[in-house]
């Protein structure tokens, strides 16, 4: 699975993407975050305040409870600020 980070989430983690295979019991975006925060201090810091994290699964906005089981690409980022 490709995991992408943008804006300050990327800065806190220290890189923009990683290819990773979470354990089989990781089934939702929220559970993926639970697992990711164990990977490094940067991950833990990036996900410290989950209400500020937005999720996209295969480039579609998603909710924490949405399944990532069949996902190819999951992205985490702050609320968007374009325009």
């Amino acid at each position: 699975m490709k995991i992408l980070y943008f804006a300050w989430v990327r800065q806190k983690i220290g890189y923009a993407e990683e290819i990773n295979t979470p354990p089989l019991n990781v089934k939702t975006a929220e559970q993926l975050i639970d697992w990711l925060i164990g990977l490094s201090e940067g991950h833990a810091e990036a996900f410290a305040n989950r209400s500020t994290i937005r999720i996209a699964i295969d480039q579609q906005f998603a909710e924490p409870n949405d399944s990532i089981v069949k996902a190819v690409e999951v992205a985490f980022f702050p609320p968007v600020t374009g325009g």
Partner: peptide, 29 residues
């Protein structure tokens, strides 16, 4: 414009004399 501001994945980072900051999303948007 209203939809773009909340639905398109863009993020702004501003530079000032004292450093850089990510712009926070606005409730009014």
């Amino acid at each position: 414009m209203d939809y773009l501001k909340t639905q398109a994945p863009f993020w702004k980072r501003e530079e000032t004399e004292t450093g850089e900051r990510w712009v926070a999303a606005r409730q009014t948007d």
